[in-house]
Simulated scan of single mutants.
Amino acid sequence: MNSSIEESPFEHNSLKVIESLIDMHKDLVFVYHNNKPILFNQASKVFFGVETLKEFAREFGTLENRFVPHDSYFHVSTIDNEHPWQQSIMSIEESDRIISMLDRKIKPHAFSVTVEIPLDGYELIFFNDITSQLIKRIMTENKTNLDSNTQAYNRTYFEHVSPIILTAATFNEKLIGICLVEFEHEEVEFAQSISESIKNQIREDDMLVRWNDKSFLLLFLISSEEDAHSVSQKIRDTLNQFQATHKTRVCMGLKNKHESIEAIISRCENSLTDTQENFISL
Results as ranks from 00 to 15, higher is better:
F47V: 02
Y157L: 07
N13P: 07
G253F: 05
I194D: 02
I165W: 04
H246M: 03
I235L: 07
E225I: 02
F216V: 01
H75F: 09
L282Q: 12
R249Q: 07
V250S: 12
H33L: 01
A228E: 11
I117N: 15
Q151L: 08
D120L: 13
C251R: 06
S195K: 07
V68W: 01
L53E: 08
T62M: 12
K36W: 05
S148P: 11
N256W: 08
R66T: 12
S223I: 05
E116S: 11
V231L: 06
F74R: 09
I265N: 11
F171D: 12
I265P: 10
E184R: 12
H83F: 09
W85N: 06
I130W: 01
F158N: 11
K174N: 11
L217E: 02
F220W: 04
V115M: 05
K107E: 15
N200L: 07
I261R: 11
N212T: 01
T273D: 15
N145Y: 10
S112P: 10
K54W: 03
E93G: 12
F126R: 13
S271I: 03
E184N: 15
Q243P: 03
V181W: 04
N270L: 08
S14D: 13
N149M: 10
S215F: 00
Q86P: 09
E19C: 11
Y122S: 01
F47A: 02
P163Y: 04
N2F: 09
L146M: 15
N154I: 01
K257L: 03
T131D: 09
I264D: 11
Y157H: 15
D206W: 00
Q192Y: 00
E55P: 05
I264L: 15
L39P: 11
A169Q: 03
F67H: 09
F190D: 08
C179Y: 02
E259F: 00
